[in-house]
Simulated assay, not measured.
Amino acid sequence: MNILLVEDDPDDVELLLEALHDNDVKFRIESIKEGDKVLPYLQLCKIFPDIIILDLNLPKMHGREVLISLKSSTFSHIPIVILTTSSSKEDKEFCLKSGADKFLSKPSTVEGFNQTVLAITQIANQHVEKNLSR
């Protein structure tokens, strides 16, 4: 699974990496810390991600803006999971209406991260299977 992680907190990056390893997920990950770097990265990459994991509170460009930019671009087919500290109903509704495939609040336990990884892998696998059947 090819993952693009858009996250500025190194601790959250590390927790997600540990959860992916602990759940025996085979993955390749690229990490971007600033929202304004996402589209330029995708325009230059040779292997597109199977899934984008996007935080909302990012420097230079808020995650909401990144989501809208992605969903109105040629990359709109890539599934996006919002993984954020926000538990705001307004944020969740906005993101889902704007095209996010899933909205998850960042977990605070190992079990919570395991559930997060399960949700991410299910969405990414559905995307991969859909592309293989084309």
Rank of each mutant, 00 (worst) to 15 (best):
V117G: 02
V128N: 07
M1T: 02
N2G: 08
T116E: 01
P79I: 01
K60V: 14
S98M: 04
E90L: 09
Q115H: 03
G99Q: 10
L20Q: 05
G99Y: 11
F27V: 08
C45P: 06
P49F: 09
N114R: 01
E7R: 01
E18C: 01
D36T: 02
S133E: 14
S31Q: 15
L4R: 04
V6G: 01
L42G: 01
F94H: 05
E90G: 03
Q122A: 12
G99F: 08
G99A: 08
R28L: 14
N114D: 03
E65F: 13
L96F: 12
P59N: 00
C45L: 11
I3L: 10
I29L: 15
P79A: 00
L118H: 14
F113A: 05
E129D: 08
Q126Y: 11
D8Q: 01
G99P: 06
N131M: 13
V110Q: 12
S105D: 11
I82Q: 03
S108Q: 06
Y41I: 14
A19Y: 00
V38A: 12
E7C: 04
Q126M: 11
P10H: 00
I82K: 00
A124L: 00
V110M: 09
V66P: 02
A124T: 00
L132S: 12
M61L: 15
H62L: 11
K71I: 09
K37Q: 15
S86F: 05
H62F: 12
R28E: 15
C45V: 15
F113G: 05
S31M: 14
P79L: 07
P107H: 10
L42H: 04
F113E: 07
K33E: 12
I51D: 03
S88D: 12
D55V: 13
I32G: 05
L83A: 00
I82N: 02
L39F: 05
L17A: 06
D101C: 01
L58V: 04
K106G: 10
L16K: 04
P107L: 07
D50W: 07
P59S: 03
G63T: 12
D12M: 02
K71M: 14
L44N: 09
R134N: 12
F94E: 09
L16S: 07
